[in-house]
Nucleic acid binder design. Structure first.
Lengths: 196, 196
DNA sequence: TCCAAGGCTTAAACTAGTTTAAGGGTATTT
DNA sequence: AAATACCCTTAAACTAGTTTAAGCCTTGGA
């Protein structure tokens, strides 16, 4: 049992912790991979074959528009999950990229293996239900912000919610996540230092 | 067994259909209610006690900001689910309202009863996992649009995705959902008729 | 039946956020 | 060690979206 698997097993202690049998089944079905900075675990046009747990490092998921601009949908750092759910379950081609921002270590499970865990162990269905529910709540807060707050308010609440990420990410990536240009983020930051 | 329950049981046929025992347990734990136009099933400051299935009619979920403006987070019409997940599971007070836009019929289950179904029947954990996953995918598409598309593009894709709702809702409600003012939506609509 | 409350539009003045362009700084790569 | 790519900022001109105000038309309640 590697330290990577320990991180995953610890992670499940936040939900319904796994028993011995479940831990064994889990470790037989998740595979460890190391990903370089700028390495992709999913590219637009490919089917998303894996559900990914981030052990260390950091990823971004983004879509590219007609004008070749990247738009960051989400980040995932240590102890977070990342996958294109839509492509993963439908097995249709994905419209997004998932790329490492830092050298990273991940644990991945294939579609068929996850279905095996769901079918044979009630607890995996339950734990993943709860994981997705929490991500749904985060996403809903983000939608609320995007329809009701200014860019400055959104930036401040990003800093508050992800202080850890804010240090590690270049501002261009944060701007893309907030839905504004890097130039405008620069203006906002300047205005904030003058306020403080 | 009322026609309302039939609608719910039919709904589950889209996922893993229920067997006889599960149908009985379900019908013992969901309660039917009729809600008038402008009736609330959740108000800001209350704890969201129910998970709600809409049999007929239509609801909006919205937050109210400091300036007393309403911002629509989502709509739910026939055969859709609506609840403030965050408040429902945490049992903390909610920051949103859920209000009927039309006279409606709903089926509701309490927190403890849903936990009972989750615990005793693997299939409910699974079905609700899938339901939430689908809603997560929808929400993610909405986030992508909000960070990458103009208001006109968002309006057009709302019309495409919810042609049914677009007819039933006043434009003020759609504007609030899109995160723009009714005046600007009016401009967009005018520009579109001139294009067509 | 009347009237109050929404709902839709128009228009003028305004503000938030983008675009284009340029310059300087700091990491990665070679 | 040099070269290149990326990152951050500034500024001027522009465009998308808001605000305020007014007018008209429907709808539902008393």
């Amino acid at each position: 049992m590697t330290t990577s698997f320990n991180a995953l097993i610890e992670h499940f202690k936040n939900y319904f912790p796994l028993d011995e049998k479940e831990r064994v089944e889990l470790s037989e079905r998740f595979n460890e991979r190391k990903i370089k900075r700028r390495g992709f675990i999913l590219q637009q046009g490919d089917v998303c074959r894996h559900f990914t747990f981030v052990v260390s490092g950091c990823f971004k998921m983004y879509a590219v528009d007609q004008a070749s601009k990247e738009h960051n949908l989400q980040f995932a750092a240590e102890n977070d999950w990342i996958t294109d759910l839509s492509s993963f379950y439908s097995e249709k081609t994905s419209s997004v990229y998932i790329e490492a921002i830092e050298p990273s270590v991940i644990l991945q499970i294939k579609h068929a293996d996850l279905l095996y865990l769901y079918t044979h162990f009630h607890k995996f269905d339950r734990n993943f239900r709860i994981i997705i529910e929490q991500k749904y709540i985060e996403l809903q807060n983000r939608v609320l912000q995007s329809i009701s707050s200014t860019a400055e308010e959104r930036y401040l609440s990003f800093l508050e919610q992800y202080p850890n990420l804010a240090n590690r990410l270049p501002n261009t990536q944060i701007a893309s996540y907030l839905g504004i240009t890097p130039e405008f983020l620069s203006k906002i930051r300047k205005a904030l230092t003058h306020k403080a």
